[in-house]
C-alpha cells in the first residue's frame, strides 16, 4: 500500500518536473537574450549596432576591449571601485552583526527604539542628503577621494544589514548560545564562533543586497569625485556618454567587463552559501 502511494507521488513529480523545467528554461531564455545582445553588440561599432542589433557583427571589432585594457585609467577605476565596495561591505557586515547580536539579545524598549532608528534609514532617498554629505566630506577633507564613498556606503548599507541580520538573529536557537555560554565562552566569542558561522546565509544575503547598489552607484561618485585617478568604474564609463551621442558599443564592452567580477563573486558566494547551509544545523 505504502509503496503504491509513493509511486503515485513520484509519477506526479515527473509531470511537475517537466513543467518546472519548462518554466526555468523559458525564464532563462528571457534572461540570456539581453545578455547575448549586450555581448555581441560590444563587438560592434557605435552605429553598426543598429544594422542588425540582435545578431553577430559583420565585422568583429575588438577595439572596444583593447581600448579598455590599453587605457590604464580603466584599471585604476576598477581598482577604486573594488577597494571601496568591498571595504564598505566588510564594515557593514561587521558593524551590522554587532548591532543585530545586541538587538536580538537585549531586552526592553531601548533596543526596539534603536532598531527603528536604524531601519528608518531605508525609507528616505539618501540623495536628499547630498548637499550635507558633500559639506561633511569637504570638512573632513575626503572630497575628491574614493574614501569619501566608504562612510556613505557603510551608512547606506547598515539599515538593511541591521534589519535582515536582526530578523535572522531572532530566529537563532537560544539553546545553542546558552550551551556555549555554559562552556565558558564570552559573548563576543559566541558571536564570532557560534552565531556568525551559522548566520552565513543572512550575511551573504546582506552582502549581495549591498554589493549591487554600491558597485553600480553613480550618484555619489558623480558629486564627490572629479579627480581622474579617484574615479569609480561607473563614473569613468560616463565619459562615453556625450551630450547628443553615446558610444554604446564601448559602454557595453566596459560594463560587460565590470559585471564579470560581480557575477564571479556571486558564483563563489553562492557556493559558500550552500556549503554553509548544509554544514549548519539551523532549522526553521
Amino acid at each position: 500500500m505504502d509503496s503504491v502511494r509513493r509511486k503515485k507521488s513520484r509519477l506526479f513529480g515527473k509531470k511537475a518536473g517537466i513543467a518546472s523545467s519548462l518554466i526555468l528554461f523559458v525564464w532563462s531564455a528571457i534572461v540570456i537574450f539581453p545578455l547575448w545582445v549586450m555581448f555581441i553588440n560590444s563587438f560592434k561599432d557605435r552605429l553598426s549596432i543598429y544594422k542588425n542589433p540582435f545578431w553577430l557583427p559583420e565585422k568583429w571589432n575588438f577595439k572596444n576591449y583593447t581600448n579598455v585594457l590599453k587605457e590604464g585609467n580603466y584599471l585604476v577605476y576598477f581598482r577604486n571601485s573594488f577597494l571601496v565596495v568591498f571595504l564598505s561591505i566588510f564594515i557593514v557586515l561587521v558593524l551590522g552583526s554587532l548591532v543585530a547580536y545586541a538587538l536580538a539579545n537585549w531586552k526592553g524598549s531601548i533596543p526596539n527604539i534603536l532598531y527603528f532608528i536604524f531601519i528608518a534609514g531605508m525609507m528616505l532617498p539618501i540623495r536628499i542628503a547630498s548637499i550635507r554629505l558633500l559639506g561633511i566630506m569637504k570638512s573632513i577633507k575626503l572630497i575628491n577621494t574614493i574614501w569619501s564613498l566608504l562612510p556613505i556606503y557603510t551608512a547606506m548599507g547598515l539599515p538593511i544589514a541591521v534589519f535582515v541580520l536582526t530578523e535572522y538573529m531572532r530566529q537563532f536557537p537560544k539553546e545553542l548560545m546558552e550551551a556555549a555560554h555554559v562552556d565558558g565562552a564570552g559573548r563576543l566569542k559566541i558571536l564570532v564562533r557560534v552565531v556568525m558561522p551559522m548566520m552565513r546565509p543572512a550575511l551573504a544575503t546582506v552582502a549581495i543586497y549591498n554589493l549591487v547598489p554600491f558597485w553600480n552607484d553613480l550618484w555619489f561618485p558623480l558629486i564627490m569625485i572629479s579627480e581622474e585617478n579617484q574615479k569609480t568604474l561607473l563614473l569613468g564609463v560616463t565619459r562615453l556618454f556625450g551630450q547628443y551621442q553615446t558610444d554604446w558599443s564601448m559602454v557595453l564592452a566596459v560594463l560587460s567587463l565590470s559585471a564579470l567580477p560581480v557575477i564571479l563573486l556571486y558564483i563563489f558566494m553562492s557556493k559558500q552559501f550552500i556549503k554553509g547551509l548544509t554544514a549548519g544545523a539551523l532549522k526553521g
Binding site: V94, L142, N144, T145, W147, G186, R187, L188, E227, Q230
Partner: peptide, 27 residues
C-alpha cells in the same frame, strides 16, 4: 571578557579614521 570586547570596539573605532587617513595621504 569585557576588556576583550572593549579592545574589539576600539579596533573598530580606529579602523575607520585609519582608512580615511589612508585616503588623505594618498591625495
Amino acid at each position: 571578557m569585557k576588556r576583550r570586547l572593549l579592545s574589539w570596539i576600539l579596533i573598530l573605532l580606529l579602523a575607520v579614521p585609519l582608512l580615511t587617513s589612508c585616503g588623505q595621504t594618498q591625495t
